[in-house]
């Protein structure tokens, strides 16, 4: 398991908080909450992919520059699944 914290610039406020996903093989859990700064804490079962995480998250925040505190508990999800879960979580914050 590896853990790291990544920061991005985002200023669009979130309407609420959301939780999606499960820590199951090939999947991940995302907890997304309103915050003054954009910080993502990642715990992942697969070591050595911090760069990929940074790129995946940077793409997400480029499209959705939200101010959010995000926690990710990952069990080996692909970047595609990560992007999907982030989009789902963001959608749910609007509900």
């Amino acid at each position: 398991m590896e853990r790291f914290e990544l920061r991005f610039s985002g200023n669009a406020p979130l309407a609420g908080r959301a939780h999606v996903g499960v820590v199951a093989s090939g999947d991940l859990e995302v907890l997304m909450e309103p915050s003054n700064e954009t910080v993502v804490s990642v715990r992942t079962s697969v070591d050595g992919f911090e760069k990929v995480w940074r790129a995946t998250l940077a793409r997400f925040f480029a499209r959705h520059p939200v101010a959010a505190r995000i926690e990710i508990n990952d069990s080996g999800a692909t970047p595609g699944v990560v992007s999907l879960r982030l989009a789902q979580a963001l959608e749910r914050t609007k509900a």
Partner: peptide, 10 residues
């Protein structure tokens, strides 16, 4: 779990 390098769930 984290102490055994296993990712926990919230």
């Amino acid at each position: 779990l984290a102490r055994q390098n296993i990712v926990p769930q919230a």
